[in-house]
Amino acid sequence: MSDVNSKHEEFIVFRVGEQEFCVEITSTREIRGWTPSTVLPHSPDYLLGVINLRGTILPIVDLAKRLGLHSEGPTERHVVIVVQVKNKMVGLLVNSVSDILEVKAEDLRDVPDLDNQVAAEFFGRVVVLEERIICEVRLDRLVPDEVELAA
């Protein structure tokens, strides 16, 4: 998973509820404000629906709900981070974007073996800084696969 060739990696750090998470900056396409979405039928509760991103249909994931945290629901103050996962784009609803970090390879650790499904499922690596630690969200786990949800 970790890239030995590059000394530095850049991450976008954002706040979800009281916690901070990050994603690789190379997956990030844009950051925009929240606009009301169109609800999709037959979809999981963390999927807030779809919005119009300049003519593209963009699904929005409520990251708090997805990570099993308390969700305040979307408000005007929320922010959508548009990320690219494989060949699809998805928007992540977060409270705010707080930082852009340049992280040295030695400051990146694997997630410790926790007795926590969420950690195992959604967190890739951990950025360990002097005063704080920030978990990297695994984007490929966020959105349901092609598998039909319907019975």
Binding site: L40, P41, I57, L58, P59, M89, V90, E146
Partner: peptide, 8 residues
């Protein structure tokens, strides 16, 4: 293109 097929 960005999500998946939804029933109905």
């Amino acid at each position: 293109s960005n999500y998946k097929r939804i029933p109905s």
